[in-house]
């Protein structure tokens, strides 16, 4: 493609980090409200796809933390590993123990569920993002 959409490019440069932060917020919100790794991952995929549509797929792929296939595999590995801390506490695999952290005035509850959700987030972003970028790439080739 030779023609470039300058306004959209400038806009997208600013929008991309906002979308990624929003998806991350959605991931953390899944803690005890609707949200979670899968939806957040899809939001990140939307960000990557929008970036690929406005720039191109290889630039969008570079914007992701790892190559798409590796990203999804690392996500699954993180999710599998999130079951391990419970084993050391003598609980069955994939049990998710909770800890409460007191930070001055307010209490923060932490659990390995977060780690599992993070794994799902990365896996979805990598897998579905990879498919979308690949599709956009085939469209670019035919233009």
């Amino acid at each position: 493609m030779t023609s470039r959409a300058h306004i959209a490019e400038v806009f997208m440069r600013g929008l991309y980090p906002v979308l990624i932060i929003a998806s991350f917020w959605m991931l953390l919100r899944g803690h005890n409200a609707p949200g979670g790794g899968f939806i957040a991952g899809l939001m990140a995929v939307a960000a990557s796809s929008a970036y690929a549509l406005i720039f191109n797929s290889s630039k969008a792929s570079k914007k992701m933390p790892l190559l798409p296939a590796r990203l999804s595999v690392s996500g699954v590995l993180v999710a599998l590993a999130s079951g391990l801390p419970a084993v050391f506490q003598g609980l069955p695999y994939l049990s998710h123990p909770w800890w409460t952290l007191s930070l001055g005035g307010f209490k923060l509850s932490l659990s390995t569920v977060m780690l599992f959700d993070l794994g799902v987030y990365l896996a979805v972003w990598g897998a579905i993002g990879g498919i979308c970028l690949h599709l956009i790439e085939t469209i670019e080739e035919n233009l």
Partner: peptide, 21 residues
């Protein structure tokens, strides 16, 4: 508390590591 799922985790982990490399 992980031994019964080990026949699943070991090959799955191997498969994922082989994808990474």
């Amino acid at each position: 508390m992980i031994l019964p799922v080990a026949p699943l985790l070991v090959p799955l982990g191997t498969s994922l590591l082989c994808t990474l490399t």
